[in-house]
Every structure is written in C-alpha cells, then in structure tokens.
C-alpha cells in the first residue's frame, strides 16, 4: 500500500464515518501512537474538506494499559498522551495503523474510559491483518492484508506524514 493508496483509503473511510454519524459535532478522533497520529490528522483534514466540520483529535498511549506488563522484563517506552477535552457523550473513533491481535484496541478502550463515558466507540484500522486474539472487530478498514502471524507489518514515514508506504517485513523463526 503506497501513500496514494493510503490517502484514497482514508478519504473513503472519512466518507463512511460521516455517512454513519448522526451528529458530526460529537465526533472525536483518538489516535493510537505512533502510527495512528498521521492517519487521524489526515482524517480530520478530510472531514473538513468533505463536510466543513472541525473534528477534535486526541492522542492516547495505551502502554500503561497493556496486558503483558505482568510479565518480567524490560518495560516498554511510554508515548505521548494528549486528550484535549473530555470524551463524555462523544462518538469516539479510535485510529490505529495496523490491527492484528486486538490487544492494543482492548487497552485503548480501557484507557478511553478513564477519560469519560463516550456515547459510542468505533475503530479505524488502516490495515487489518487478521490473527485476532480478542473479540474485537474493526468498523472501518483501509485494507485487509492476509499475513502470516510471524510477519511484521509497519508503516514507514511515521513522523506526522503519510510519505512512504506500508511494508511487510518477514521475520523468520519467530512466532
């Protein structure tokens, strides 16, 4: 998926979100760092272009809510959390780049509840790899990319822009 394809997917997703949302004023995009941040920014730009609405973007790090912190070993680095306003009564759209097991989305939902009580929560995944380990389903998908569980999919050019493309790196020997 190159950057042109990513932009097209995000434009389609923006249309789908607007189509489903009854009250645009209540939309609140919440990006999961790092990959979700440039995607959420592009989505707000798209909302502005399509429907002339300004949608808030929050950033929510899920690290402190991960389910593997009970295990021994090195603690993962924390990333930025910046929630500009409460999420009460908002239609929150979580935005992530690559969704696989669903564990990050589970953590994000827990984190979100600490910031208030959204009226509903939906999820955008640019890439859905399958291999779900939790009962989590995406509401909007950029592209389904069938992969092996041990392959690694990542978005390059994550410094706030969509340059570059998604790449699939095969990591042999790991499961």
């Amino acid at each position: 998926m190159n950057d042109v394809a990513i932009r097209r997917a995000l434009m389609r997703i923006a249309h789908e979100v607007l189509e489903r949302c009854e009250d645009l004023e209540r939309l609140y995009l919440v990006a999961i760092p790092n990959g979700g941040v440039p995607l959420a920014r592009q989505l707000t730009a798209n909302f502005k272009q399509i429907a002339d609405v300004n949608v808030i973007v929050g950033i929510l790090d899920t690290t402190l809510y991960r389910d593997d912190l009970k295990l021994k070993g090195e603690r993962p680095l924390l990333r930025e959390t910046e929630m500009p306003s409460a999420v009460d009564d908002r239609v929150v759209i979580l935005v992530d780049d690559v969704v696989k097991t669903g564990r990050t989305i589970r953590a994000a939902m827990d984190a979100l509840m600490d910031f208030g009580r959204p009226s509903s929560v939906q999820v955008v995944g640019l890439v859905d790899r399958g291999h779900r380990e939790l009962p989590i389903k995406l509401d909007y998908v950029g592209k389904n990319v069938p992969t092996q569980a041990h392959e690694l999919v990542r978005m390059s050019g994550q410094d706030g822009n969509l340059e570059g493309a998604l790449e699939i790196v095969v990591m042999p020997g790991e499961s």
Binding site: D61, L64, Y65, L69, L78, E82, A86, D110, F115
Partner: peptide
C-alpha cells in the same frame, strides 16, 4: 514526563501495577 500527564487527569490512576 509521560507520568506527569496521568497526574493531570480527572481519574489519576492507571492499571499498570
């Protein structure tokens, strides 16, 4: 620096430990 953000929330608690 990231932990400071937790202290600024209404719910000043994360389930980490």
């Amino acid at each position: 620096e990231h932990m400071r953000e937790v202290g600024r929330r209404v719910v000043k608690k994360v389930p980490t430990l």
